[in-house]
């Protein structure tokens, strides 16, 4: 068998290596460039840094207020993600195990939510938030994050919970447990694999979100990392060294986050998240 597949395995190794290089080379180039002053990046874009020029990091961290942005990003990502996953699970439970007719309609409404771009709701949303007095607050950012996270997460939760045998909850109900007890004591423990997948996906999305936080906030003290990074990179700022350093600061935590949790992602999907 091994012999027969030599050609195939060479080809497949090549494919794997191509993809790997496509990931490693740009990221390495980004990290190396972050340690070069602007002039060197422009003159010799390919050269290895002559010395480890860390001023880029110090300057972009202080000038770009990345410290406070970092804290905000962490708050938004954790709080919004936790609530999204929780609401999605409870909705998923209701939609998959209660067999009311309205479930179908509500599921469809959530599916349509997948198609809505942030831009088409941003103006009405801003008007609403200012009238409510929650624009420019952390709550004002977290609520839309949850709403935009829900469609995909409800979908994941519903399909997963559908796959859990009915017998488990039915016997508990017969024994006199309430639906809430079933949800907290039986469902959530069983759903752990999908919960970690949902958590990671939502977290990544929230961490990288840009447009909502930019429009709905104005104070530096409530803005998040992508806004900070974009101010280096979005406009006419021409210091590529600072730009690369900001990119590294925004990217590396997520790469580490992923490396720590990567097995959970695979587990979650293996648990049947995306199977009809």
């Amino acid at each position: 068998m091994r012999k027969r597949l030599t050609l195939a395995s060479v080809l497949s190794s090549m494919l794997m290596i191509t993809f790997t290089l496509l990931t490693i080379i740009p990221l390495t180039w980004m990290i190396l460039s972050a340690f070069k002053p602007h002039a060197m990046i422009v003159r010799t874009p390919l050269a290895f840094p002559m010395s480890w020029y860390v001023d880029n990091f110090i300057l972009s961290w202080t000038q770009g207020h990345l410290g406070i942005y970092f804290i905000n990003s962490t708050i938004y990502s954790f709080v919004a993600t936790f609530l999204t996953v929780f609401f999605a699970l409870s909705s998923g439970y209701a939609l998959s195990k209660f067999s009311y007719k309205s479930s179908r309609v509500i599921s469809m409404v959530y599916t349509l939510g997948l198609l809505i771009t942030v831009h088409s709701v941003i103006v009405p949303l801003f008007i609403m938030e200012t009238k409510l007095g929650i624009s420019n607050t952390r709550i004002g950012v977290i609520l839309p994050y949850i709403a935009f996270g829900l469609p995909f997460q409800v979908f994941l939760a519903t399909t997963y919970i559908k796959g859990i045998p009915d017998a488990m909850q039915e016997s508990a109900i017969i024994d006199g447990a309430t639906f809430f007890q079933v949800f907290f004591k039986i469902l959530i423990p069983v759903a752990t694999p999908i919960i970690s997948t949902m958590f990671i996906y939502t977290f990544l999305g929230n961490w990288n979100e840009f447009i909502l936080v930019l429009t709905l906030t104005s104070d530096l003290s409530v803005r998040s990392l992508p806004v900070g990074i974009n101010s280096f990179a979005g406009g006419m700022s021409r210091d590529y060294g600072l730009q690369f350093a900001a990119l590294v600061i925004g990217t590396v935590p997520m790469i580490l986050f992923y490396l720590v949790f990567k097995d959970k992602i695979a587990q979650g999907f293996a648990a049947g998240a995306l199977k009809e």
């Binding site: 609401f87 999605a88 409870s90 909705s91 439970y93 209701a94 939609l95 209660f98 009311y100 509500i106 409404v109 959530y110 939510g113 809505i116 088409s120 709701v121 103006v123 009405p124 949303l125 609403m128 609520l143 839309p144 949850i146 709403a147 935009f148 829900l150 469609p151 409800v154 309430t178 639906f179 809430f180 949800f183």
Partner: peptide, 21 residues
């Protein structure tokens, strides 16, 4: 229970996405 499970998500979803749409 059904409504209680659905309410928080649906309320947020409706006011933040459906209504603006």
């Amino acid at each position: 229970s059904y409504y209680a499970f659905l309410a928080p998500g649906l309320l947020l979803f409706a006011s933040i996405i459906i209504f603006p749409v």
